[in-house]
Amino acid sequence: MIHVLGSCRFRKRYDFLFENNLPAEKEELKKQLKKTNDPDVIEELKKHISWIDKQLKFETAKSTDAAVLSEHKKKEREAAKHGKRPFYLKKSEIRKQRLVEKYNKLKASGKLESFIEKKRRKNASKDHKYMPYRRPNTNTEQQK
Results as ranks from 00 to 15, higher is better:
1 M>C: 08
1 M>P: 02
4 V>T: 06
5 L>E: 11
6 G>H: 03
7 S>C: 04
12 K>E: 10
15 D>N: 07
18 F>L: 08
23 P>Y: 06
24 A>K: 06
26 K>L: 02
28 E>D: 12
31 K>P: 01
32 Q>D: 09
35 K>L: 14
35 K>T: 14
36 T>K: 04
37 N>C: 05
40 D>Y: 06
42 I>R: 10
44 E>P: 00
49 I>A: 00
49 I>W: 00
53 D>H: 11
57 K>W: 04
58 F>K: 13
59 E>I: 13
60 T>N: 10
60 T>L: 07
71 E>T: 09
81 K>E: 12
87 F>P: 00
87 F>G: 01
90 K>M: 02
92 S>K: 05
92 S>F: 02
93 E>I: 00
93 E>V: 01
95 R>K: 06
98 R>T: 03
101 E>Q: 06
101 E>F: 14
105 K>I: 12
107 K>M: 11
107 K>E: 13
109 S>F: 07
113 E>I: 15
117 E>M: 08
120 R>H: 11
121 R>G: 04
122 K>M: 14
123 N>Q: 14
123 N>C: 06
124 A>N: 15
128 H>N: 15
130 Y>G: 06
131 M>K: 11
131 M>L: 09
131 M>T: 15
133 Y>C: 15
135 R>K: 09
136 P>Y: 05
136 P>K: 07
142 Q>T: 15
143 Q>D: 13
